[in-house]
Simulated assay, not measured.
Amino acid sequence: MLKKYGRTFHLPQSPGATSDDKIMSDVGALVAADEVIFTEKMDGENTTIHSDGCHPRSIDARYHSSRDWMKAFAAGISPQLAEDERIVGEYLFARHSIAYSELPTYFLGFAWIKRDVVQPWDATLSRFADLNIAPVPVLYRGLFSEDAVSDVISDLDLSSQEGFVVRVTTAFADKDMPTHLAKYVREGHVQSETHWMSAELVKNGLL
Rank of each mutant, 00 (worst) to 15 (best):
L2M: 08
R7E: 15
R7M: 12
L11D: 08
P12H: 10
S14P: 13
P15C: 10
A17M: 09
T18N: 09
S19I: 08
D20Q: 09
K22R: 15
K22C: 11
M24Y: 06
S25D: 15
V27P: 10
V27W: 02
G28C: 09
A29R: 08
A29G: 00
A33M: 05
A33N: 02
I37D: 02
F38K: 00
G44P: 07
E45V: 11
T48H: 03
H50T: 00
D52F: 02
G53M: 06
P56R: 13
P56W: 06
I59C: 02
D60I: 03
A61N: 05
A61G: 04
A61E: 10
R62G: 14
Y63Q: 09
Y63K: 14
H64R: 11
S65Y: 02
S66V: 06
S66L: 02
R67T: 03
R67L: 08
D68A: 12
M70I: 05
A72K: 13
A74H: 05
A75R: 06
I77C: 00
I77Q: 01
P79R: 10
P79W: 04
A82L: 15
E83V: 03
R86L: 10
G89Q: 05
G89L: 04
E90P: 04
Y91Q: 03
L92A: 11
R95K: 15
E102H: 12
L103F: 03
P104T: 10
Y106M: 02
L108S: 01
G109P: 03
G109H: 02
F110V: 01
D116F: 01
Q119L: 08
W121P: 01
D122F: 00
L125T: 09
L125D: 09
S126Q: 14
F128D: 04
F128L: 07
A129L: 13
A129Q: 15
D130L: 07
D130K: 02
P135E: 05
V136R: 00
V136A: 13
P137W: 03
P137H: 04
L139I: 04
E146M: 12
V149K: 01
D151P: 00
S154A: 15
L158E: 10
S160C: 10
G163M: 01
G163T: 07
F164M: 04
R167F: 02
R167V: 04
T169E: 11
T169S: 13
T169K: 05
T169G: 05
A171P: 08
F172A: 07
F172T: 03
K175C: 12
D176C: 08
P178H: 03
P178I: 00
H180M: 14
L181N: 00
L181D: 00
R186G: 11
H189S: 11
H189Y: 09
Q191I: 15
S192I: 07
T194G: 07
H195S: 14
H195N: 13
W196P: 09
M197C: 05
M197V: 11
M197K: 11
S198M: 08
A199V: 07
L201E: 07
V202R: 14
K203V: 07
K203C: 06
N204R: 05
